[in-house]
């Protein structure tokens, strides 16, 4: 399904009014939040991802690992239709969020991204104040009184474990923060719009070990409320921070495929696929 053919939303569909509170109350820990059924992604004629079947569980951290070029980021970006911005990108199969197909022709990609937030490899705060960075997305959604917005900003910064460090300088530019703080600011910005799933594309690759630990601790606290999917090249990070792990590999036709999925502890101690065994043991290259 080409992104350019997707029309702007239809009012009757749940994407506009997702009723987050109601849906989340009904969900149980570990239930499938997102389900991928035979998902393939094409860039023009090139198949970057082939026949991926996967469940992203609610309130769990799912790590996606694999060598460069195996389609990890493509998979991640397809979860919230970020690939729609790539010319010629086409997605086949079904990608369900709470049972509804994200790529349905009536679904508004912006509404999808509101429910499925994303944190990128490099911290990318807006060139605005710390306060505005968090408030910006909320303000786009609805008009919020100043007092309520103050509460939202404080709650999000607290949830992102950044409040104590920035509470006295909320009007300073977000660009003045350190790399680790900027990444946590981006996480605060992502959760401000109350997503249900947070996607993280190598969120710690540009951070030092201390900032990395803080992000990993933050992920552990965030998973109480969100499903998290993280792409990482750091196997140690995947093994210590995630609950489930998806191992991807490039096929001979250069398409990425999912070769193993399971609980992280099992995948790192008793992998079922020889290629996973070799990869997590460092027998590659």
């Amino acid at each position: 399904m080409n992104s350019s053919t997707a029309p702007i939303s239809a009012p009757a569909l749940p994407w506009i009014q997702p009723q987050i509170g109601i849906q989340r109350a009904a969900a149980r820990n570990g239930d499938a939040k997102m389900t991928l059924e035979d998902v393939s992604v094409f860039y023009g004629a090139f198949c970057a991802l082939r026949d991926v079947n996967l469940q992203v569980r609610d309130r769990r951290i799912t790590a996606v690992i694999g060598p460069s070029g195996c389609g990890k980021s493509t998979l991640l970006r397809s979860l919230n239709r970020m690939n729609d911005t790539v010319t010629g990108c086409r997605v086949e199969g079904r990608l369900l969020l709470d049972g509804a197909n994200v790529y349905d022709r009536h679904v508004d990609p912006v509404a999808v991204r509101r429910r499925v937030g994303m944190v990128f490899q490099r911290p990318n705060p807006f060139p605005k104040s710390i306060y505005e960075n968090v408030a910006y997305g909320v303000r786009l959604q609805r008009n919020v009184p100043k007092r309520e917005m103050d509460e939202i900003v404080e709650r999000c910064l607290r949830d992102a474990a950044l409040w104590d460090e920035v509470k006295d300088k909320l009007q300073r530019s977000g660009m003045t923060l350190s790399g680790g703080q900027q990444q946590r600011l981006c996480i605060a910005r992502a959760i401000a719009v109350q997503p249900e799933v947070i996607l993280m594309d190598e969120p710690c690759s540009a951070l030092d070990p201390i900032a990395t630990v803080r992000i990993e601790e933050l992920m552990q606290s965030l998973k109480r409320d969100y499903a998290i999917v993280i792409v990482t090249h750091n196997l140690q990070q995947a093994s210590r921070a995630s609950d489930y792990c998806a191992m991807m590999m490039m096929r001979s036709d250069r398409a990425g495929e999912l070769i193993e999925f399971g609980e992280t502890a099992a995948l790192f101690t008793t992998p079922q696929d020889k290629r996973t065994e070799d990869y997590v043991s460092g027998r590659f290259g």
Partner: peptide
């Protein structure tokens, strides 16, 4: 940081 069979 051995994993899989190495860890075992």
């Amino acid at each position: 940081h051995p994993a899989a069979r190495d860890l075992r």
